[in-house]
Amino acid sequence: MSARTRNLISGLLWTSPWLVGFAVFLFLPLAMSLWYSFTDYPLLKPPVYIGMENYTGLLHDDKFWLVVKNTLVYSAFAIPLSTLVSLVVAAWLATPGLRARGFFLGAVFLPTLVPMMAAAMVWLWLFNAENGLINVLLKFVGVSGPIWLNDARWSIPALVLTGLWGVGQMVVVYVAAINEVPAALYEAATLDGMGPVRRFQHVTLPLITPAVLFNVITLTIGSLQIFVMPYVLFRNEQGQRDSGNMYNLLLYDNAFVYQKFGYASAMAWVQLLVVLALTGIMMFASKRLVHYRGAA
């Protein structure tokens, strides 16, 4: 047996858990869902092939377009705002000589560890129009708060707000990235008379673009898949069903409430293709924008 064959065998052996897991828990379901997306599959009856009907059905489904719109609007606000907030907070946290950095970082990071379900409960309570903390505080400063979850116009802003609360992970990544920027570059920039803001813009930002790319891709995938928060905030008696309805909520409904497995699978595949396309585009665009140290 040649060394090459031996290595092949041992490589396959070492990675066999993944290979088996990938085949059974990812590839097989993926293939099944592709097949179901071309069938009528009402749960307890066998699937029957119906060609492209599920996909053409999506085109004419108002509900589908509504959740597409909502999810995109949410993402369009959540992604830039979360990126902005996390960058700013990270820039503060990366300031040299900062004391109690661990505490501040911990405070920002902690919310990302809270179970989504518990977090959603807390926000449900904070958004309570009458006694919720947000409106009570607003009242305290003399502003009459909106009725948040009862007002369609505030559904997405409320979701974005809860999203901002969960930027901790990105902040940590940015802080680490900023810390790797050589101090000499800052000194040079300072000597050139740049203030903190311009320094961040012209020195820090270009050098941490790989981290930005990583975060934006993760954030995009996450935003398009938002589920638990709108599920808790809007799937209750008083919630705004439509304005808070998101792509994955409708997918879940179609699969497990309306018993349209085939239709739900078509929705799932549309989502997969969109995520792959967006990731691809970002990777491609990044070739021009992202600065990898050593490459320049």
Binding site: N7, W18, P29, L30, S33, Y252, S265, V275
Partner: peptide, 27 residues
Amino acid sequence: IRWPGRGAVFFTVLLSMMIPFPVIMVP
């Protein structure tokens, strides 16, 4: 370990990170 096909397996690892859970949830 260096072995032929290592790159392909690593690619499946990267790819699988992009599959939204709902896509495979039902099957």
